[in-house]
Design a binder for these strands. Structure first.
Lengths: 346, 346
DNA sequence: CGTACCATTGATATCGATACCAAGAAAGTG
DNA sequence: CACTTTCTTGGTATCGATATCAATGGTACG
C-alpha cells in the first residue's frame, strides 16, 4: 500500500535467489568430472592429491553443500533421519525424553524429525505416514492410543520402530518402559506402611497405558495389604493441573475424606497441591505421593514423596535400540522389552 | 563365537527387507503409466475416473507412499522441512517455543528437523550446515553466541532465517525477541518503588544476548531512580540452579546484604530460592523478582513477582515469519524485528 | 460430415548424486 | 623392454518422481 517503490522492482536480480551449486558446478570449477568430486567428498580414496585440493578449493569457493536428499534416493543409501513422535513436548517429561534421544542420535550422526501428536491417534497416524514418506531410517514413538494398525504396517515396511514410555498390546516391537506398576506399588505400599487406610487416587483415564499400569500398581498394593480400594476415592480422567485441582476439591468433600493422595503424574500432583493450598488444608493433614518428579517438588508445603524415574535415560535407551537395529547389532533378535526402574525420593 | 545357527543362515529371504514399492510398481499394478499415477496423487486433474480408482486401489493394495526425497530434488520443489535449532530443549521455556513453532508449521504442512545446540556455537554451525544440506525450506534458530558467519552464509544461500529469543548484532534477518530491557526495567522499578535500595542481581554472563539486555534494564531502572548499582551485589555467569544457589549464598554474606533479588531467568530464580530456603531466611526478609515464569512459582515461600512472557507465542511468531517469507508474503520487505511484551505477575 | 478443440495418456528428459564399468596412465615384474 | 598389475579418471546408467511435449481419443460446432 502507499507508493510503489519502483527502484526495487526494476532490478529483478536483487530478488532472484541464486540456485545452490551442484556437484557439476564444483566439477567444472575444479576441472574434473562430477565423479571425482563425489569420490573426494566420499573419502578421497584413489584420487591424486592435487585433484583433491582442487576439488576442496572449488567446494570452499562455491560454498557447495551436498544435497542429502538427492544422495539418499540411491538404493541402500540411508537418510540419517529418525522420526520422533511425542505426545506433548510442553510436558517437561517428554522434553527430557527428546533430549536424551537427541544425545544418542546426534552422536551417531542421525538427525531428528520431531512431531507432536497431542495424544491424538489420527495426528500420530499422519505423522508416521509422512515420516516414512521422508524415508526415515527409524522411528521412536510415544503412542497416543491403543490403535496400532498404522504402526504395524510401518513395521512391515521395514522401518525399525521403538515404542517409548507406552506399549501397545499385541504390537511386537522394541519397547522401553518405566516400570510403572512396581513404582506405583512401592509408593502406595509406603503410604499403607505409614498407616494410611484412606488413600485417594488422582490420575488420567485407563485407556492411557501408563495410567492404567499405575492404577494397577496402586490397586495391587492395597490387595497385598488386604485393604480395599474405595471407588469413591478414585478419580481418573484428568491430564492437566486444573482438572486435577477440581478432582481434588471434590475428594475433600467426600464423607470420611482421604488422609493421603496418590497422584499419577506431575500434572495431577500440581493440581492436587493447588487444591490443597486453595482450601488451606494444614500441611500435616494430607500426605502426598506423586508419580514423576518435577522441579521444586521439594518446595511443596506438604509432605510429598515422588516416584522418580529418568525420562532422559528413557530417550537414550530408545535411541540406542533404534541404532542397534540399524547397525545390525540386533539382527534376528526378538523385539526387546526394557523396563527402567523407579526410585522413591522424599 | 558360539555355535553357528545354520538354520537361519540358510534362508536369506527371512532377513531380506522388502524394498518399498515405487511409483512404477503402482503403475504396473494399476495398468497405467507412472505419469498417470503421479497425476492422480497430485490432485487427479484430467484423469479418467476409472483410472483414478485403479490407481488408488493399487496404492492401497501395495501400501505405496511417495518418496518425498525423490520428489524434492526436482528444481523448484520444496521439501516442506523447517530446521529448528534450540539451545536446550530441557529448559521448559524452549520446549514451549518448540511447541509454538510446531503448531504453526504443522498447520502449514511443514515438518520440523530439530537440533539441540547446547549453547555451543560449533555444534550450531554443524547443525545449520547439515540442515541446509537436507534442503530445509527455512530455519528458526536460537543463536548460541555472537558469531554469525555461518548464518550469514546461509542467508545468502537463500534459506529464510528467523532468529528467536536472541539477536546477533550485525546480522540483518527476521528476528523475534522478548522485550527483555523493558521487562527487566519494569520489574526493577517495582522493587525500587517498594523502597528497596539494595537489590542483588543473579544471572548469566553478558555474552548471552538476553542476559545482557536484562542486566541493562536492571541498570537503567537504577539510573532512572538516581540510585547506583552496587557491583558487589551483581553476580553473573550462572545458568543452572546450583551455580545460582552458590551465588546467592555468597550474596547473603556480603556486608550490608540485599533486601531484594532480581534473578535473570527461571534457572537462577530456582537457585536463589534454594539458597534462601537452605539458609532459613525468613520470608519477609527477602523480596524476589524473577524473569520467566515457571510452574508452581506461586508456591514459592517468598514474596515473588515474575516477569512473564509467552514462549509459545514466540515460537508461533517465528514460524509465521518463516512461512510468510516462503509464501512470498514478505517479499521485498526489510528484515522484520518483533519484540513481544512482558507482564508482571505476582 | 469435416474441422477445431480439449481431455487423456504416455514417452522422454531431468533433478543431484553415486555404483559400476571400461579406458588410459603409472608402476612393478621378469 | 614386454607384460602384468594397480591406480586414476570419466562415461553411462540409475535411484523415484515430475515437467514437458507429442500423440492419441473424444466432443462440439458449423
Amino acid at each position: 500500500m502507499g507508493a510503489m517503490d519502483n527502484g526495487e522492482m526494476s532490478n529483478p536480480r536483487s530478488v532472484q535467489r541464486a540456485t545452490a551449486p551442484t556437484i557439476h558446478d564444483v566439477a567444472a570449477a575444479a576441472g574434473v568430472s562430477p565423479m571425482t568430486v563425489s569420490r573426494v567428498l566420499g573419502g578421497g580414496k584413489n584420487v591424486r592429491p592435487e585433484k583433491i585440493r582442487a576439488v576442496l578449493d572449488a567446494v570452499a569457493a562455491l560454498g557447495y553443500r551436498k544435497n542429502e536428499n538427492a544422495r539418499s534416493i540411491r538404493p541402500g543409501q540411508r537418510t540419517g533421519l529418525i522420526g520422533v513422535i511425542i505426545t506433548n513436548v510442553a510436558n517437561p517429561y517428554y522434553a527430557q525424553l527428546q533430549l536424551g534421544a537427541e544425545e544418542v542420535l546426534a552422536g551417531g550422526g542421525f538427525r531428528m524429525l520431531v512431531g507432536n501428536s497431542g495424544e491424538d491417534a489420527d495426528r500420530e497416524r499422519v505423522l508416521v505416514h509422512d515420516f516414512v514418506g521422508r524415508q526415515v531410517d527409524g522411528l521412536i514413538v510415544v503412542p497416543s492410543g491403543t490403535v496400532s494398525d498404522h504402526l504395524e504396517t510401518e513395521r512391515v515396511g521395514g522401518v525399525p520402530l521403538v515404542l517409548a514410555s507406552r506399549r501397545i498390546e499385541g504390537l511386537a516391537t522394541d519397547t522401553v518402559l518405566i516400570d510403572d506398576v512396581a513404582g506405583a506399588f512401592e509408593g502406595t505400599r509406603r503410604l499403607l506402611a505409614e498407616g494410611h487406610t484412606r488413600i485417594a487416587y488422582v490420575g488420567n483415564i485407563k485407556s492411557i497405558f501408563t495410567s492404567r499400569r499405575r492404577l494397577d500398581g496402586f490397586t495391587r498394593a492395597h490387595l497385598t495389604a488386604g485393604l480395599p480400594v474405595d471407588p469413591a476415592l478414585v478419580r481418573v480422567g484428568q491430564n492437566d493441573p486444573d482438572a486435577a485441582r477440581r478432582a481434588m476439591l471434590e475428594l475433600l468433600e467426600v464423607p470420611d475424606p482421604p488422609t493421603a493422595v496418590f497422584s499419577e503424574n506431575n500434572r495431577n500432583t500440581v493440581g492436587v497441591v493447588r487444591a490443597l493450598t486453595e482450601k488451606r488444608v494444614p500441611a500435616d493433614r494430607m500426605r502426598l505421593m506423586g508419580f514423576d518428579d518435577f522441579e521444586l517438588s521439594d518446595m511443596i508445603p506438604f509432605p510429598l514423596t515422588v516416584i522418580d524415574h529418568d525420562a532422559r535415560e528413557l530417550g537414550r535407551t530408545a535411541a540406542q535400540m533404534v541404532v542397534a537395529r540399524l547397525n545390525g547389532v540386533a539382527d534376528g533378535l526378538a523385539p526387546q522389552q526394557v523396563q527402567l526402574p523407579t526410585t522413591l525420593a522424599d
